[in-house]
C-alpha cells in the first residue's frame, strides 16, 4: 500500500503542495489527475522514492521511508514498478536485455527464456525482443517499460502519463495491461490528464480518482 501523511513538497521556496495525506490500499487502482504543473509527476516520484518530501512522511508497503539509506531506497525501488511518459532505456541493450535489467541489478538469476518471452508476448512485444529501444515506436516503448516494471512482480505500479505519447488504440491496450495487473492484486497509481481513459477504466473496474490542484489532493467528483 501507499500512504502519505501530511506530505509537503516545495521547489526553491515555492510550495507545490502541502499537507497531502493519502491512503491507497493494497490492490487498489487509482488515477491521479490535474492540470499540467500541478505536481502529478512529483507526487509519483515521491512514491517511487526518486524525490524526498520536504516535510511529512511517505509509507510504502507499510514501512516509513524517511530514514532509508541509499541501499534501502534501491531495495524499495525493486518492489515498485515505474513507467514514465518518456520511459528511458539503455539504448545499446536490446529490448529483452532492458526488460531483464531489474533482475540483473538485484542479482537474481535471469528468468527462464520462456518466461521473458511470455512476458514480452503479454505486452505484445515478442516480435521486437532483439531490437534496440531507439527502433521502437512510442507505444512499443511504453509497453517495454511496463514489461520492465513488472518483471520482478512488484506490489506497486506507478505509471506517469503512460499513454501520453500514444494513440487511443494503444492507450486502451496499455490500460488493459494495467487493469490486468490490478486484477492480479497489484496496487496501481496512474497519473493522467486523459479523462476518456479514466472513464474507460471506471466502466470496467472500480477505480478511484484523485485530483491534484492548488497545492492539495482531493477525491474527484462524480463527473469522473
Amino acid at each position: 500500500m501507499i500512504e502519505l501523511n501530511n506530505v509537503a513538497m516545495s521547489y526553491g521556496g515555492r510550495a507545490l503542495f502541502e499537507n497531502v495525506s493519502l491512503l491507497l490500499p493494497e490492490g487498489s487502482f487509482h488515477f491521479l489527475t490535474g492540470p499540467s504543473g500541478a505536481g502529478k509527476t512529483t507526487l509519483l516520484k515521491l512514491c517511487s522514492l526518486q524525490l524526498k518530501a520536504s516535510t511529512g512522511q511517505v509509507k510504502l508497503l507499510g514501512r516509513p521511508t524517511d530514514d532509508l539509506d541509499r541501499n534501502q531506497v534501491a531495495a524499495f525501488r525493486r518492489q515498485i514498478g515505474v513507467v514514465h511518459q518518456d520511459s528511458r532505456f539503455v539504448d545499446h541493450l536490446s529490448v529483452q536485455e532492458n526488460v531483464l535489467l531489474p533482475l540483473a541489478v538485484s542479482h537474481k538469476a535471469t528468468t527462464d527464456a520462456n518466461d521473458v518471452s511470455d512476458l514480452l508476448g503479454w505486452v505484445g512485444l515478442d516480435h521486437v525482443a532483439a531490437r534496440m529501444p531507439p527502433e521502437l515506436s512510442g507505444g512499443e516503448r511504453q509497453r517495454a517499460a511496463l514489461a520492465r516494471a513488472i518483471i520482478q512482480s512488484p506490489e506497486i505500479i506507478l505509471a506517469d502519463e503512460p499513454t501520453g505519447n500514444v494513440d487511443w488504440d494503444m492507450s486502451l491496450r496499455l490500460l488493459d495491461l494495467l487493469i490486468e495487473l490490478n486484477r492480479l492484486g497489484k496496487t496501481v497509481l496512474c497519473a493522467t490528464h486523459d479523462l476518456n481513459l479514466i472513464r474507460q477504466a471506471k466502466s470496467r473496474i472500480p477505480v478511484r480518482v484523485l485530483r491534484i490542484r492548488d497545492g492539495g489532493v482531493t477525491a474527484a467528483g462524480a463527473d469522473l
Partner: peptide, 16 residues
Amino acid sequence: GQIVDVLRLVGAEDRW
C-alpha cells in the same frame, strides 16, 4: 547519465 537513471529506477544499488 541516462543509463545511471535507468539503473537507479530499476533498483540498482550504487555498488552494482
